[in-house]
Amino acid sequence: MTGLLNDTQVSEALRSLPEWEQDGTRLSRTVEFDSFPQAIQGVNRIAEIAENEGHHPDFDVRWRKVTFYCSTHSEGGITAKDVSMAEEIDGVVDALSQT
C-alpha cells in the first residue's frame, strides 16, 4: 500500500507535470490527438502499461479528445502511483505526437 499525498506534495508533483491538474481526489489531463485512431492507440498503449503496473487510470474518450484521471481508489485519493502513471501517460502522449 502507498499513502495519500498531502496538498503540498501534490502541488510539488504537479510542477513536473505541467499538463496535469488536481481535480478533487484525482489528477487529470485532457489530450486532443490528431485522429480518433491515434486517440485509441494512446489509450491502448497506456492500458498495457497500467496492466503491467497493476495501477489503472480512468479514461474518458470523446472522439479525438481523451481525458485521463489518475487516482488510487483503494486509498481514496492521489498517491505516488498516480504521479508515476501521469508521467507514463505523458511519455506515451509525447511519443504519439512525434509520429
Results as ranks from 00 to 15, higher is better:
residue 37 P to T: 07
residue 11 S to C: 09
residue 73 H to Q: 09
residue 52 N to V: 09
residue 59 F to V: 02
residue 5 L to R: 03
residue 43 V to H: 04
residue 98 Q to S: 13
residue 7 D to G: 09
residue 40 I to T: 12
residue 15 R to K: 15
residue 49 I to Q: 05
residue 24 G to Y: 01
residue 87 E to G: 15
residue 5 L to I: 05
residue 83 V to D: 10
residue 6 N to W: 02
residue 72 T to K: 04
residue 50 A to K: 00
residue 51 E to W: 00
residue 97 S to K: 09
residue 28 S to P: 02
residue 71 S to D: 08
residue 64 R to M: 07
residue 98 Q to N: 12
residue 34 D to E: 15
residue 58 D to C: 09
residue 39 A to C: 09
residue 87 E to S: 13
residue 23 D to P: 01
residue 3 G to Q: 15
residue 87 E to V: 10
residue 22 Q to V: 00
residue 92 V to L: 01
residue 20 W to E: 10
residue 84 S to M: 14
residue 26 R to G: 05
residue 67 T to C: 03
residue 54 G to R: 00
residue 14 L to S: 10
residue 93 V to E: 04
residue 14 L to F: 03
residue 96 L to M: 02
residue 40 I to S: 12
residue 68 F to T: 00
residue 94 D to M: 10
residue 46 I to Q: 06
residue 96 L to E: 01
residue 46 I to L: 12
residue 85 M to V: 05
residue 66 V to M: 05
residue 86 A to G: 01
residue 41 Q to K: 15
residue 36 F to K: 04
residue 21 E to L: 13
residue 92 V to F: 07
residue 60 D to V: 13
residue 98 Q to R: 14
residue 65 K to N: 11
residue 86 A to C: 08
residue 54 G to D: 08
residue 10 V to Y: 03
residue 37 P to S: 12
residue 65 K to M: 13
residue 27 L to Y: 01
residue 31 V to T: 03
residue 79 T to D: 11
residue 1 M to V: 10
residue 4 L to V: 05
residue 62 R to V: 05
